[in-house]
């Protein structure tokens, strides 16, 4: 498990790593409307997929390393630098800054793996599985609402909540990071599609509002 983390010399490859939506950087910049809605691809993150029964002993050990396991759909637990997103009753996504990765001097994957030990469950390094988009601004919600059927009104979708759902017909994890800011986690292969979809949905806000 987590073999990639242990590979010697992976740091040498770090410089040539490209993020899944890097080819859209310029388009995201031009398509953003400052003060209205802004879209950026987020930095690399360290991500670990964890499957464990949260009520078990190994569940408690993993919770101790990760800073708690969320109890239900929507909840996010963790520490200042680690977030644990609820994916299912016994499935979680641990997200941390890139430096937390074992290949870069961190120990996130290794310590989760150690916490699980031989007990039933799974810790998998998923750092390359998904990228992130940061969508923010007063119109960010309106943009998402064009392709997401959830109730995104702040009365029910509050900062610090994460939901697995569909945006623009593709599966994403949607994390509300602030009153007007969202982080979307599409799988790498959907990054191009989702980036372009969001740009298209943002386009109208570049024009003056028609009264």
């Amino acid at each position: 498990m987590a073999n990639t983390a242990a590979l010697e010399g992976i740091n040498g490859l770090r410089d040539i790593r490209r993020s899944p939506a890097s080819h859209l950087t310029a388009a995201l910049e031009t398509g953003s409307v400052q003060g209205t809605v802004v879209l950026k691809e987020g930095p690399f993150q360290t991500m670990a997929g964890v499957r464990v029964d949260p009520r078990s002993e190994q569940g408690s050990r993993i919770a101790a390393v990760a800073g708690g396991l969320p109890a239900r759909c929507g909840e996010v637990s963790g520490t200042d630098s680690v977030s644990v997103l609820w994916l299912a009753p016994s499935e979680f996504l641990v997200v941390a800054p890139e430096e937390a990765h074992d290949s870069l001097g961190g120990d996130l994957i290794g310590s989760l793996t150690a916490a699980l030990g031989d007990a039933p469950g799974q810790v998998v390094d998923l750092s390359a599985n998904r990228t992130t988009f940061e969508l923010s601004g007063p119109r960010a919600r309106a943009v998402l609402e064009k392709g997401c059927a959830l109730d995104l009104h702040p009365r029910s979708f509050t900062p610090g909540t994460a939901l697995t759902t569909e945006v623009g017909n593709i599966p994403v994890i949607l994390l509300k990071t602030g009153d007007e800011s969202f982080r979307l986690f599409p799988r790498a292969s959907f990054a191009d599609f989702l980036g372009r979809w969001l740009l298209d949905a943002m386009r109208e806000y570049a024009s003056p509002e028609v009264p």
């Binding site: 239900r72 759909c73 909840e75 016994s90 029910s156 979708f157």
Partner: peptide
């Protein structure tokens, strides 16, 4: 509704 599912039963997937 769609959000934090306050009443969602905390059933384990496996059992």
């Amino acid at each position: 509704s769609t959000t934090t599912g306050s009443a969602a039963p905390s059933t384990s997937a496996t059992s």
